[in-house]
Write a protein that binds this DNA or RNA. Structure first.
Lengths: 156, 156
DNA sequence: TTCTCTGCAAATGGTTTGCAAGTAG
DNA sequence: CTACTTGCAAACCATTTGCAGAGAA
């Protein structure tokens, strides 16, 4: 955790930015919730618990800054709010999303399934791929299981 | 074109909605610009040319309604505006997007490359896929060609 | 009539910005 | 000193909503 923060600190400083207490608190929240896809508001509320004096605008500015530095990825699942994800070390980010339309959960798949497709794109369409996103909407395994259990119980 | 409008009219009527002049004008604009991914504002401005009295709210309501009926697909490329795409007849929509980060163009690929992945998802992750989206960001063939030509010209 | 639909204006809500004050090198 | 930051409040802007009037069945 500290190592990761140090690394981000260096990334900031190499561009002339500082790791202020507010930024550090924001980064810590992000690190502690690496699994989730937090919105700016989510981050704001979590940061407020450890640094109550922080302002929402600062959180937005920090998230924007970290996105510019490619520390974060800003994404949009179509629900009207931007969500942020820590990028991993690998130069490419290759995770895909499973978005449950029933419970709203967003799971990730870390495998990269698209390399063959990207090669095909470059050759067949003369399109130089820099990034991609692949999201699936559907019913997640939790909701599937729940539905199955309720069916078995037969007490409706 | 008229056939497509008739079909949409039927889809509306089957759900108790009417194909009003405003809605028809909106649909015509969508049909005439099937290639593009228009925003609500884009549609509004184009519709205004043929029906100047129309209101922006009506366009939004029409786009929303047509999305609910699965005539349109509402999508989000992360630029802060929703964009709309006519769906094809096929029950599934299986096009992917090539988004050029240089000129902003959005091209479509109509092939469906994801069926094998969807099968794997259902088996391996117990995730029932209902829909998906696959977007690539990169440099489109036009910008690639332009860059190549400028290089050849060697007049900087 | 009754229910849908429309245009307008106002409200909403996530995000951004202007600004004066705070802070680090 | 100088440049970067911050909190606050106001501004922005895409989208939604309330409402009274218009229109179709």
């Amino acid at each position: 955790m500290e190592a990761k923060i140090d690394k981000i600190k260096q990334q900031l400083q190499s561009q002339g930015y500082k790791l202020t207490p507010q930024r550090e608190a924001t980064v810590r929240v992000l690190l502690e919730n690496e699994e989730d896809h937090l919105s700016a508001e989510d981050v704001f509320m979590l940061v407020k618990e450890k640094a109550p004096e922080i302002g929402l605008a600062t959180v937005y500015r920090t998230l924007e800054l970290l996105s510019d530095l490619h520390v974060l990825e800003k994404m949009n699942f179509g629900d009207g709010v931007a969500r942020y994800d820590l990028r991993n070390d690998s130069s490419h980010h290759h995770h895909h999303h499973l978005i449950c339309v029933q419970c709203g959960a967003v799971d990730e798949i870390m495998e990269d399934w698209l390399l063959p497709l990207e090669e095909r794109l470059e050759q067949q369409y003369n399109f130089k791929v820099l990034d991609h996103r692949l999201d699936f909407q559907g019913i997640c395994h939790r909701c599937n299981d729940k539905a199955k259990n309720e069916k078995n119980d037969k007490n409706e």
